[in-house]
């Protein structure tokens, strides 16, 4: 059976949909609870409707942003998994990062023939275990979070915590980027330079619009891919 058929199989659509259903029904449950509570608190109907409407409009823009990354993810891990993983915890960049790490572990290469069933299975486990990290922490800690926040603020310098988080992310993507570059394959250097250059340009241009960052990433990704294809095209 062709790997493309497997990663897009109808059963996988159904099973991946479970997570989407979990997230959407959670949102509906909380929406009902909070609308009821708002009513009880004396927030009248026009104000409730206004808050629903403005939240929907505000979230529309940034929800459009992952349009390019969706295509990239579908090409790599198939549509059902993309659907599930973009509707839950991690953003497209996190998921692609995990897939790349897992392909490495399985001795395969993302987007190449070598990315077969085993690499796909490893990727599914990688994404599940990665998301599990956030989910279990929230599951275990949120109801006692007030104490946790106080504890962290007294124990650690909040400025350092912020730097630490940035540094860990940078180290992680530093690893992923070097993993592409250290074999000195010219196509990858060109792709990385074109993608990086475009990102620098766009993020400077979008400086005041933080929410366009995800779109900037998608456009840089496309630019890097097409420039490389133009230079080395077969």
């Amino acid at each position: 059976m062709d790997i493309n058929e497997i990663i897009n199989s109808p059963i996988l659509w159904v099973l991946s949909g479970l997570m989407v259903i979990a997230s959407v029904s959670q949102a509906i449950v909380f929406l009902r609870n909070s609308l009821k509570e708002a009513d009880r608190l004396g927030i009248d109907k026009p104000r409730r409707v206004a808050s629903v409407r403005s939240a929907c409009i505000t979230s529309l823009g940034p929800s459009l942003a992952p349009v390019v990354s969706v295509l990239a993810l579908i090409a790599v891990i198939g549509a059902p998994t993309t659907w599930m993983r973009l509707c839950d915890v991690g953003a497209a960049r996190t998921e692609l990062g995990v897939v790349s790490l897992m392909a490495d572990l399985a001795g395969a290469e993302v987007g190449a023939e070598s990315f077969g069933l085993e690499a796909f299975s490893y990727s599914l486990w990688g994404m599940a275990l990665n998301n599990f990290g956030w989910l279990i922490l929230v599951f275990l800690l949120v109801h006692r979070m007030n104490r946790v926040v106080v504890w962290m603020d007294t124990k650690y310098d909040p400025k350092w915590i912020k730097t630490l988080m940035g540094a860990a992310t940078m180290g992680m993507f530093g690893y992923l980027l070097s993993n592409q570059l250290y074999t000195f394959d010219a196509t990858r250097w060109v792709a990385a330079a074109a993608g990086g250059g475009m990102m620098l340009l766009l993020s400077t241009a979008f400086k005041k619009h933080q929410r366009l960052q995800e779109l900037a990433l998608g456009l840089s990704l496309l630019f890097g891919m097409f420039v490389t294809q133009l230079v080395f095209g077969q």
């Binding site: 792709a191 990102m199 993020s203 990704l221 890097g224």
Partner: peptide
């Protein structure tokens, strides 16, 4: 599409 990852990681790292 085979150049997705280097372009993506280049862009994210720069960001």
């Amino acid at each position: 599409f085979s150049y997705i990852l280097p372009s993506l990681f280049g862009a994210i790292f720069v960001d």
